[in-house]
Amino acid sequence: MIEHGPHKTAITLEVNGLPQFVDVEPRRTLLDTLRIDLGLTGAKLVCNMGNCGACTVLVDGVAVYSCLTLAVECEGKAITTIEGLAQDGVLHPLQQAFVQHDALQCGFCTPGQVLAAHALLARNPQPTEAEVVAGMAGNLCRCGAYRGIIEAVLSAAQQTGPQQ
């Protein structure tokens, strides 16, 4: 049994492959911890109630809403945020596909979209259009970039080719 709180408590998170040390109350969401305490503002706060998808991050490779996840729950788990996708300044193929297919307008939902797509392709590297639609259904886009998003995910899947 491990007990934290109710006051601030020191925890270690693994974010984008690096250990991060933060002092947080147990009630602090992973989203607020990433944004406020770690300055990783790629994940966006839009609804704060799990109704939009803009705060999507990967926890142990699984796409979750970080606004409904507590930071203290994530000790010992690998967290991937949008800032962790590009390698050495080169955009991830999915990010490139989002740019090439104009799968965004204002871009506020985009980090969440890209990470949801990342989780989708990790599980299903060659999805059909219907599978892309089903897999991306947890991310709303108010600008209406959905057609571009579908194209971008399909094209990124094609580029990476069938995986073993």
Binding site: M1, E3, H4, P6, E25, P26, R27, L70, E73
Partner: peptide, 8 residues
């Protein structure tokens, strides 16, 4: 949200 104790 009220503060709380979190127990794993």
């Amino acid at each position: 949200m009220q503060p709380f104790i979190h127990i794993d």
